[in-house]
């Protein structure tokens, strides 16, 4: 077994175990922390697929920004009161299970029948190259220079807007 497949099984095991922990643990904070580990495991899987950029973004955006948001929400809504939510609403629980089954079915279909349908033969070399940080940086600074700069102004406008709506000057 090559090092690559050892790493793959290692990260895959982390992802599976932590994702089970996310839905099984009673404490929502523990769920959220397991989700962070799950994201980290997925980032590792991406790395073994040579998608370095997606791996980094996975850690920064999901494990960093979005999970902080999750924890803030958990902190603010006092989850003790919501603990019985699913016990009281049986139909809601059935709905979530139904959605889970549908998604699982789609994924199984893709894995079993999809290998011949969806691989665009001959492009794997190219897609390996696209996933690297150098390649994405190069694209951002050449053909996507204008959108890249425009996003800078978008973020500026959004942060000024957020500050305007939150600051004390109004009162």
């Amino acid at each position: 077994m090559s090092l690559e497949s050892v790493l793959f099984y290692f990260f895959a095991a982390i992802s599976i175990v932590t994702s089970i922990l996310v839905i099984s643990s009673k404490n929502p904070v523990l769920s959220a922390l397991s989700l962070i580990l799950n994201f980290a495991g997925l980032a590792g899987v991406y790395l073994t697929l040579y998608a370095q950029f997606i791996a980094v973004v996975q850690v920064i955006v999901y494990a960093g920004a979005i999970m902080v948001l999750f924890l803030f929400v958990i902190m603010l809504i006092r989850p003790e009161a919501e603990r019985n939510y699913f016990q009281e609403r049986k139909s809601f629980k059935m709905l979530t299970i139904g959605i889970g089954v549908i998604v699982l079915g789609q994924l199984m279909f893709l894995i079993i029948s999809g290998t011949s349908m969806f691989t665009s033969g001959g492009h794997s070399e190219q897609s390996l190259e696209v996933g690297t940080v150098e390649r994405i940086g190069w694209e951002l600074m050449t053909s996507y220079l204008l959108p890249f700069e425009a996003i800078g102004f978008l973020l500026l406008a959004a942060s000024i807007g957020a500050m305007v709506l939150a600051k004390k000057k109004f009162e």
């Binding site: 996507y144 204008l146 425009a150 978008l154 406008a157 959004a158 000024i160 807007g161 709506l165 109004f170």
Partner: peptide, 23 residues
């Protein structure tokens, strides 16, 4: 991509401006 970025830029500013009168 440019249409999307431009639209978001415009919309974000409009959301803020619409709620500018916070009181």
């Amino acid at each position: 991509i440019m249409i999307f970025i431009g639209l978001e830029q415009m919309s974000v500013c409009f959301y803020v401006l619409a709620g500018f009168n916070r009181r």
